[in-house]
């Protein structure tokens, strides 16, 4: 059971992601963005950070990296791909996920713990959670405001492709609980097939209680439990 952490110049969440994958039993490698080939892997992880300094748009240049062609091919064969923060932005830029992540409406970089609600538990990423469970997970981004045209947004809701939503302590998606202005408090979405997940919060930074929360660990252990079945 092998996981690849794709690393771009400017990635900074790669080691945390590596450790989280290892912690749940994945044999994990870093794969540099100029390398090619993901055929040996069962899971692909795109880390957070500021690839290429966020020049032009967050994720816009990273998605032109040679390895992204392989990420697209891996995803189209049904392989699970998780993009966190800058990884989410890169998945949107690459077209694997719809929409775009624009400047936070508060015009500030937001670095804090937030609460997110699990909206779907039938995915390889979330099978270890309860539906409606509220997780405490940190965010750290300046451009996490999810936008898309109205049709796309309505389709995402209609097809139940919102996986995580920012909520308050009672589990309600209020404006106050929304750290960046995302439409309908969207914190994470999946593709039509459900094998690509993009999310702004950092579950890999919430994998041990000594870090303040281990609510993110179940995402990785869900993958560890689901991935063997996916690759057979």
């Amino acid at each position: 059971m092998k996981a690849a952490v794709v690393t771009f110049p400017g990635s900074n969440g790669d080691y945390d992601l590596y450790k989280a994958a290892q912690q749940v039993g994945f044999e994990t490698d870093f794969v540099w963005h100029r390398e090619r080939g993901l055929d040996d892997y069962d899971l692909v992880l795109l880390p957070g950070g500021f690839s290429y300094g966020d020049y032009l748009r967050a994720g816009a240049i990273a998605r032109m990296s040679p390895i992204m062609e392989d990420v697209v091919a891996f995803a189209s064969k049904g392989g699970p791909v998780l993009g966190i923060c800058n990884g989410f932005q890169t998945l949107c830029e690459s077209g694997l996920l719809p929409g775009a992540l624009v400047r936070n409406d508060v015009l500030r970089f937001q670095g804090m713990d937030v609460r997110i609600r699990v909206e779907r538990t039938d995915l390889a990423f979330t099978s270890g959670y309860e539906e409606g469970q509220v997780l405490r997970i940190p965010i750290a981004h300046g451009e996490g405001n999810f936008e898309a045209d109205k049709d796309t947004l309505e389709r995402l809701e209609g097809e139940g492709r919102v996986v995580f939503r920012y909520v308050d302590r009672h589990g309600n998606p209020t404006d106050e609980a929304n750290p960046n202005g995302s439409w309908h408090n969207i914190a994470g979405i999946t593709n039509e097939a459900g094998n690509v997940l993009g999310m702004m919060p950092h579950p890999e930074r919430a994998t041990e209680s000594i870090l303040g929360s281990d609510d993110g660990l179940s995402l990785f252990s869900s993958l560890a439990a689901s991935v063997p079945a996916l690759s057979t």
């Binding site: 032009l56 816009a60 240049i61 949107c92 775009a100 936008e147 045209d149």
Partner: peptide
């Protein structure tokens, strides 16, 4: 291809 994002 690169310079503008058609979504935004």
């Amino acid at each position: 291809k690169l310079l503008a994002n058609p979504v935004t």
